[in-house]
Nucleic acid binder design. Structure first.
Length: 317
DNA sequence: AGCTACACCTGATAGC
DNA sequence: TGCTATCAGGTGTAGC
């Protein structure tokens, strides 16, 4: 569910409460939400994705996570694409070498609550933190479908930027000042694959998911199945601009919420669902030209587009 | 290299 | 009412 704007709303919401806070206690309610956590001394190849965690392995992971995180001093949260992390700062003021990494998957939430607040549904991991100005808070990771996870992960350098090792394989996102526009245009135009597939490839450009891919393609008037190599440089740059515009608007409207699955750190929904032009509108008239919007399946996922505004074409600019 | 299929989960909804 | 099938904002791996 959450794509770049939603994760960024969460990051910004966490920032004032966690930067400078100390972790007082940690409770792992369900070790399956630690699927990205590699315990110290463990073989990193074991217990990866799509593998059911044994109760013993889950207990080891939970204990390791709780032990290492308790007492940690938290820094300012950062984000790349849909990965979010909080650096763990050393007492000596040296550059952080470790981070608390979060991926929200389809239904993950990070919720800031008062210490004594009642439980939210689907809380999988709970942190009690103490901030010098804001006092005691609870930071709860809730996740209905458990595709998301928390982990402790080492920070490594990508140029000037520290990035958790598990997020090192993805490309920078288009809101990153160091995003390489020309590199993206070249890479997109060298691909034979459908542009929608390319947008969802996090190693080409990160942060884009199914909603914002459809919205950006609608804005750029590109058919989702257009091969990358048939897109001219001008239109590729238009697509990048469309992505940034749709991200900026979604961010300003607090992200896209269809239900309770995406909320900010205070449990509130965003408004961008009202501004969607293509996603989820199969059969409804295109807001631009009035033609009925179509829904097709591409790479196993729904794609929504206007067959009149977004024609397949031989080549464009 | 590029693609499909599938695995990991839970819940809502539609159709019978 | 209850069953089954399908769908959902993501990602990582196996296998062709």
């Amino acid at each position: 569910m959450p794509e770049l704007p939603e994760v960024e709303v969460v990051r910004a919401g966490l920032a004032p409460a966690v930067a400078g806070a100390r972790v007082v206690a940690v409770s792992v309610v369900d070790a399956r939400s630690l699927k990205r956590h590699v315990p110290e001394g463990a073989d990193p190849g074991t217990g990866g994705h799509g593998v059911t965690l044994s109760p013993e392995a889950g207990a080891v992971r939970s204990a390791d996570f709780e032990r290492r995180l308790t007492g940690a001093l938290l820094g300012a949260p950062a984000r790349r694409g849909k990965f979010l992390w909080i650096p763990i700062t050393g007492a000596d003021g040296a550059a952080p070498r470790e981070s608390l990494l979060a991926h929200l998957g389809m239904s993950g939430q990070l919720l800031l609550r008062a210490h004594e607040a009642s439980d939210d549904r689907f809380v999988r991991i709970r942190l009690w933190i103490e901030h010098p100005e804001h006092g005691e808070l609870r930071l709860d990771f809730a996740d209905q479908r458990r595709f998301g996870s928390l982990a402790l992960d080492a920070l490594q350098l990508d140029g000037e930027s520290p990035v958790p090792s598990q997020a090192a394989h993805i490309a920078r996102d288009p809101l990153d000042p160091a995003f390489d526009d020309r590199g993206f245009v070249t890479a997109l135009r060298s691909r034979r694959t459908a542009v929608k597939r390319a947008l969802l490839d996090q190693t080409l450009i990160s942060g884009v998911g199914n909603i914002y891919a459809d919205e950006a393609l609608w804005r750029a008037r590109l058919h989702p199945e257009t091969p990358g190599e048939r897109i001219g440089p001008g239109r590729a740059r238009d697509l990048l601009a469309a992505l940034r515009a749709v991200f900026a608007q979604a961010l300003a409207e607090g992200g896209t919420s269809f239900d309770e699955q995406y909320v900010n750190v205070n449990g509130q929904a965003g408004y961008f669902a009202h501004s969607l032009n293509a996603y989820g509108r199969g059969g409804e008239p295109c807001p631009r030209c009035g033609a009925p919007t179509r829904r097709i399946v591409l790479g196993g996922r729904s794609s929504h587009f206007c067959p009149r505004c977004q024609r397949r074409r031989k080549f464009s600019r």
